[in-house]
Simulated assay, not measured.
Amino acid sequence: MLEIQSLTKRFGGLTAVHDVSISFEKGKINAIIGPNGAGKTTFFNLISGAIRPTSGKILFDGNDVTGLRADQVAQLGVSRTFQTTTLFDRATVLDNLIVGHRLRTRSGLMDVILGSRRLKEEERLCREKAAEALDFVGLSHVTDRIAADISQEERKRVAFAMALCTEPKLLLLDEPAGGVNPEETVGLAQLIQKIVATGLTVCLIEHKMDMIMSLADKIMVLNYGEKIAEGTPAQIRANPVVIEAYLGSESEHAEA
């Protein structure tokens, strides 16, 4: 599904991602962990086309997508959420999702001016897809609510639904459980499993280790922009380099 070859990104004298190579299998849950500043979000930005790599290759479904714009990568089937869920707060939840499906429509300015049949059909389809996505993430009851009035956990689910409306093959989730309580975290983990059960591939960044260890099929650990380990949750837990660089400090914080 996704193959990364010697990916590097430098910002002036700072190397944010250095010579990272890894592959992610189709239909699996892949996780990226590491301390703050390890390069995790930069790695996502490279995959999604938000920034261009300094060197290396990104292969998606066997195609070289290195250096493509974010909209081009999204058209190919890569969608993402962000650490902070930004919505059109004065619009309804449904209207926020309709924007997401516009990626798959063809109507242009002339269709709008003429009120064409294609425009009307695509508007109907967008509303239908948005409603389906809201139902899938368990938010049918907030369809007509103003986005500013929903809870943080609901905003996270809306972000999932917006990403699903673009009809992706690969879903990149940046701290999907950030800012929610333990019970809500369990619910979001179940939603991720539900998404993968439909055939999608998920790659997520997350700091909640209990969630990652129970959810991920494969984990990559970054530290100072470099990959220091990859493997199953059991392999990562037992890796002395990871324990020293990351899990050890996490355990100390938990005990404190």
Results as ranks from 00 to 15, higher is better:
89 D>Q: 14
81 T>N: 12
131 A>W: 02
62 G>E: 08
40 K>P: 07
73 V>W: 00
175 E>W: 08
5 Q>H: 14
26 K>N: 07
75 Q>I: 13
228 I>Q: 09
103 L>N: 02
189 A>Q: 10
30 N>L: 07
203 C>K: 00
209 M>P: 04
253 H>F: 12
240 P>R: 10
17 V>E: 02
52 R>H: 13
35 P>E: 14
224 Y>V: 04
3 E>V: 07
139 L>T: 04
122 E>T: 10
190 Q>C: 11
44 F>T: 10
214 S>G: 12
153 E>V: 11
21 S>T: 15
96 N>F: 10
155 R>A: 05
232 T>L: 11
153 E>S: 15
131 A>S: 14
202 V>E: 01
146 I>Q: 06
181 N>V: 05
219 I>Q: 07
221 V>L: 06
251 S>C: 05
50 A>D: 14
125 L>A: 14
52 R>S: 14
185 T>H: 01
27 G>Y: 01
3 E>D: 11
179 G>Q: 09
108 G>L: 02
22 I>G: 01
55 S>M: 11
113 I>N: 05
107 S>V: 00
59 L>P: 01
31 A>Y: 02
55 S>R: 15
177 A>N: 14
167 E>F: 10
237 R>Q: 15
144 D>Q: 13
2 L>M: 06
84 T>N: 14
60 F>P: 00
53 P>E: 07
204 L>G: 01
62 G>C: 09
178 G>D: 06
5 Q>E: 15
173 L>E: 01
166 T>M: 09
76 L>T: 03
66 T>V: 07
9 K>A: 00
9 K>P: 00
61 D>F: 04
151 S>Q: 10
34 G>Q: 05
171 L>V: 13
7 L>R: 00
86 T>I: 12
28 K>D: 03
197 A>T: 11
84 T>C: 02
194 K>F: 03
173 L>D: 02
211 M>F: 10
118 R>T: 15
70 A>W: 00
53 P>W: 07
131 A>P: 00
70 A>I: 12
104 R>T: 02
142 V>D: 07
191 L>F: 13
245 A>T: 14
255 E>F: 11
137 V>I: 09
165 C>E: 01
210 D>P: 04
17 V>K: 01
20 V>D: 06
188 L>W: 11
90 R>Y: 15
195 I>R: 04
220 M>F: 02
151 S>F: 06
226 E>V: 07
177 A>C: 15
65 V>E: 01
181 N>H: 10
145 R>G: 01
49 G>I: 03
135 D>C: 07
196 V>L: 12
163 A>N: 03
228 I>V: 13
112 V>R: 09
148 A>L: 02
134 L>K: 03
114 L>G: 09
99 V>W: 06
95 D>Y: 00
158 V>G: 06
82 F>Y: 15
93 V>E: 01
213 M>G: 03
188 L>H: 10
203 C>P: 00
243 I>L: 13
122 E>R: 12
143 T>V: 10
223 N>F: 05
79 S>N: 08
70 A>P: 00
166 T>Y: 06
37 G>E: 14
210 D>C: 05
63 N>G: 03
122 E>I: 09
110 M>Q: 08
